[in-house]
Design a protein around this nucleic acid. Structure first.
Length: 606
RNA sequence: GGGGCCGUAGCUCAACUGGUUAGAGCAUCGGACUGUCGAUCCGAAGGUUGCGGGUUCGAGCCCCGUCGGCCUCGCCA
């Protein structure tokens, strides 16, 4: 007789001692089987809810037991039986461990081929293989947890923003290519041969248009696409919690965003996050941490010791200072215990990101006096030792690492070192959530390569009102009404107050070396709209993948994306991107260039 | 595009300084077993060492190239 698998009485995670005596129908996957020979077979049955042990006894239910003997991992079955006590044999590892189901009847709904890797909580398979068989990987407990965390995060964000009067409005996926910023993914048009849509890097311009349309509070869970190289926290397609508000200034945006994050943290992991968040000026972040997304869970600030360095004979310091650079250092408490091998390893690594080397010295005590040892210790003489130690707030047993050069390079290298040391030496306290706003960023940055000013955020960002007069005369000093939200060293999102005046918008474009005509060509729709009564507005976009990742306690967003791509933007599951039929290309009026054709032909030969 | 780590059985890994027939655990298959829960015990089967070249009497190991994965710098308004 067939078991009504469409009438499951509960899932595999819910039965408890209080259910003893009930007849239940369960369905799911065979997680494991233990065949005890003569009379007993145990099947661990798994579904989204959890695992329930099913007991088959040949004495009472010979038919079911016979079938149970043939079951293998990942077979899909439905069972009917009675919830019974496990007596002495409770399994404390399982929430359902007090009970088991004595099976009277079992149906095999589908057999499974032997899985290429074990579907278990602990990961054994390589990520490559897991991606190829993602549907199996997603059966694993931790993966289900990550996906569910993401769902809860989405739900909590929507809940919050809906309750605050935000309207959820969709924007196009097929849109116009803008050569600025990241590379676009292009979509060829059949109806307009030779023309292309682009997938949106973000709904930026559309949300601004919505403000001009009068939908003064907009939000969207928006898919965004950028054809750039990937990282652990970057995918070619990712999801933003996108929002925009009209008639607001910086304060209003920060307020609603931090409350939304507090709401999400409460709902998803039941953590109370105090608001308002700490704020730090961009300059301060760069000065003390060498990055615009500092991790405040630990110390090791970057300290400028240029004054002391100037008094030394160390060539590296002298050359850097002469070239207008800086000398900075960080102090690792208790780091003097590091071996030569360890510090040599760090040196090699920091050279790998472009540093010339890694000057260092250890702080020790000799005859009641604080002294420096090893490395570049000998260059500090007389009172410079005391000065350095005092500046660095160092004590015997510590180690000091130095970096000399341009401000940008010193920041890059010491920031890398600070993070690396904190991670490797486990200096990061668990369970800490250090939210931080980075504000007052510069609006523009000088680009050595092109010899032009470029925007740091995007060209629609409003400068500080009081900086508008110096827009042309001193662009580097202009601050932007721009803000980044940072959590534990991860950039969660960024936003700005936008320019709503057409004149100002043209002024900015001109400043960036974009002519009025060029601007009109690229951003017709926005510039036109700005003529028709654009309200002051601003907003922000949050990275949903990163937020879910942090909430789930993971270190890559791939773990909270059901079907992610590899570092080369390849999907091993569907094996895309892939070639297409010549017919499809013909229809689009696309011909591959001869070089690509030749490479493809060569590959086929092999 | 640059740097680093990696690629050996279905999976995770081992294999000394280049040296016999490339091993182990898990999974698979067969058998045994009255309470297991990462079951246990006995047995079997399982290999183009990513791919292509080179050096060598001899290559999993050395060299060159190439493909793929991960981390990272550049890049990502």
């Amino acid at each position: 007789m067939a078991i009504a698998y469409n009438k499951r009485t509960c899932d595999c995670g819910t039965l408890r001692a209080s259910d003893i005596g009930k007849e239940v129908i369960l369905a799911g996957w065979v997680n494991n089987y233990r065949d005890h020979g003569h009379n007993l077979v145990f099947i661990d049955l798994r579904d989204r809810g959890g695992i329930t042990q099913c007991r088959f006894n040949v004495d009472t239910d010979p038919e079911a037991t016979q079938i149970a003997r043939t079951l293998r991992k990942e077979d899909v079955i439905a069972v009917r039986g009675e919830v019974i006590s496990r007596g002495e044999n409770v399994n404390p590892k399982l929430p359902t461990g007090e009970i088991e189901v004595s099976i009277k009847e079992v149906n095999v709904l589908n057999k499974s081929a032997t899985p290429p890797f074990e579907v278990a909580d602990h990961v054994e398979a390589s990520e490559d293989l897991r991606l190829k068989y993602r549907f199996l990987d997603l059966r694993r407990g931790p993966m289900q947890k990550g996906i569910i965390t993401r769902h809860k995060t989405l739900q909590a964000f929507r809940e919050f923003y809906y309750s605050e009067g935000f309207l959820d409005i969709e924007t196009p996926i097929l849109t116009k290519s803008t050569p600025e910023g990241a590379r676009d993914y292009l979509v060829p048009s059949r109806v307009w041969p030779g023309n292309f849509y682009a997938l949106p890097q973000s709904p930026q311009l559309f949300k601004q248009l919505l403000m001009i349309s009068g939908f003064d509070r907009y939000m969207q869970i928006a898919r965004c696409f950028r054809d750039e190289d990937l990282r652990a926290d970057r995918q070619p397609e990712f999801t933003q919690v996108d929002l925009e508000m009209a008639f607001v200034d910086v304060e209003n945006v920060l307020d609603v965003v931090e409350r939304s994050l507090a709401h999400v943290w409460k709902k998803v992991i039941d953590v109370d996050v105090p608001v308002p968040f700490r704020r730090m000026k961009y300059d301060e972040a760069m000065r003390d941490y060498g990055t615009d997304k500092p991790d405040l869970r630990y110390g090791m600030k970057l300290i400028d010791i240029s004054d002391v360095a100037r008094k030394t004979e160390f060539k590296v310091f002298q050359e850097a200072l002469a070239a207008g650079g800086v000398v900075k250092a960080i102090c690792l408490k208790g780091g003097a215990a590091m071996t030569r091998k360890e510090t040599d390893g760090l040196t090699a690594e920091i050279q790998g990101i472009g540093a010339g080397g890694l000057p260092l010295c250890k702080v020790a005590e000799e005859g009641g006096k604080v002294v420096l040892q090893t490395g570049i210790a000998k260059f500090f003489t007389g009172e410079t030792v005391g000065e350095l130690v005092q500046k660095m707030d160092a004590a015997p047993g510590d180690i000091l690492f130095f970096a000399a050069g341009s401000f940008a390079n010193v920041c890059k290298h010491l920031n890398w070192l600070r993070i690396t040391l904190a991670e490797r030496r486990k200096l990061i306290p668990p369970g800490k959530w250090e939210f931080l706003w980075i504000v007052d960023m510069p609006a523009f940055e000088w680009d050595e390569e092109t010899g032009k000013w470029v925007f740091l955020h995007h060209p629609f960002t409003m400068p500080h009102d009081e900086d508008l007069p110096i827009l042309e005369s001193n662009p580097g000093a202009v601050r932007a009404k721009c803000y980044d939200i940072v959590l534990n060293g991860v950039e969660l999102g960024s936003g700005s107050i936008r320019i709503h005046s057409l004149d100002t918008q043209y002024r900015i474009f001109r400043m960036l070396g974009i002519s009025d005509e060029e601007a009109r060509q690229k951003f017709t729709h926005l510039l036109t709209a700005l003529q028709y009564g654009a309200p002051p507005h601003g907003g922000l976009a949050l990275g949903l993948d990163r937020i879910s990742m942090l909430l789930a306690g993971l270190s890559t967003i791939r773990e909270v994306i059901a079907f992610p791509k590899t570092q080369k933007a390849f999907d091993p599951l569907t094996e895309c991107p892939s070639e297409v039929d010549q017919k499809q290309l013909d229809e689009l009026g696309i011909d591959l260039n001869p070089t690509i054709k030749a490479i493809k032909a060569k590959k086929k030969e092999k």
